[in-house]
Nucleic acid binder design. Structure first.
Lengths: 155, 155
DNA sequence: GCAATGAGGACTAAAATAGTACGCAATCAG
DNA sequence: CTGATTGCGTACTATTTTAGTCCTCATTGC
């Protein structure tokens, strides 16, 4: 399905929740209640986001989590990468030559280009965009630069 | 990881293989040998591609598979959809309102837009592009139309 | 009729994913 | 100093998804 893992999905929801009150400290249990997810799951998600440097945490009473930087400086790709690891369409897309079919498949290079385009697309959406209540207006064209996937085939 | 399933990956490789000789009939066992994959797996892949209308098949002696239409008229998204089902980033991205968090997450609408952009990106790459031996040249800008994800944030 | 080839389904095995539980560490309030 | 609160880390289990195999039937060409 080429879909996000649930954990990444949760990560986005959690981050959006925090970003709505960037100046408060958010306890894990509090966030869990607000988004309606089990606390241990939210906790696990927060830990991964913390480790990736997207959040800061404060222990002890009245502690909690807050954004490490502005919501406009955190991209969707940051969140996905923090939780699921690097965005790559196929095994061979991340560079390591551990696909023994590369010789016969003859498709690897172009998959890498598609992966790159997806990464750029995901980089162009910030947490601030995502957390907007309303669908984002302003239909501007969003150029995917230096992707070079041949002519645009009728999209 | 936001990665393709192996089956979709195989599907792309198999389709690329067939597209290199569009005028011949390709037996399943023959394709399997060429791409170095187990025959039953290839057979299963071919079946799914056939059912999606991407391939035609001919039974009996000297039978085999061939493309149902030109390689330039088959997109990467067609192949992925045929094997893994619709491309959707999250549960709620495909329209069915079977996510009971939609009310609290406040993020659904914008995920749908991201999914749409990914689908358009995948639609813009054809089987012919993928099967090119060399990386595709011609670095043109590829506009993702009507996506409207706010300003391009520095990509 | 016989051999080659695809079609379909049932089944098993393996891996990734999600969810849970529990104990330790740090901080703050009194 | 003590206890309450809250985050941190690890290990474990269950579930689901994915991958792979096998067997039998249907169709076609010689």
């Amino acid at each position: 399905m080429l879909k996000l893992s649930k954990m990444s999905d949760y990560g986005a929801v959690v981050m959006a929740q925090i970003s709505r009150h960037p100046d408060c400290s958010h306890a894990a249990a509090d966030i869990a209640d607000r988004v309606g997810l089990p606390r241990p799951t939210v906790s696990k998600t927060l830990k991964l986001l913390l480790r990736a440097g997207l959040l800061n945490s404060q222990r002890g009473a009245n502690g909690g989590y807050r954004l490490a930087r502005s919501a406009t400086a955190i991209t969707v790709r940051d969140i996905i990468t923090a939780i699921d690891g690097p965005v790559a369409m196929t095994e061979c897309s991340h560079g390591h030559g551990d696909c023994d079919l590369m010789a016969s498949c003859g498709v690897a290079t172009n998959w890498q280009r598609v992966s790159m385009a997806v990464r750029q697309l995901l980089d162009s959406v910030t947490l601030a965009d995502l957390a907007h209540d309303a669908p984002i207006k302003l239909p501007v064209q969003l150029p995917i630069q230096s992707v070079a996937l041949g002519e645009a085939h009728g999209i």
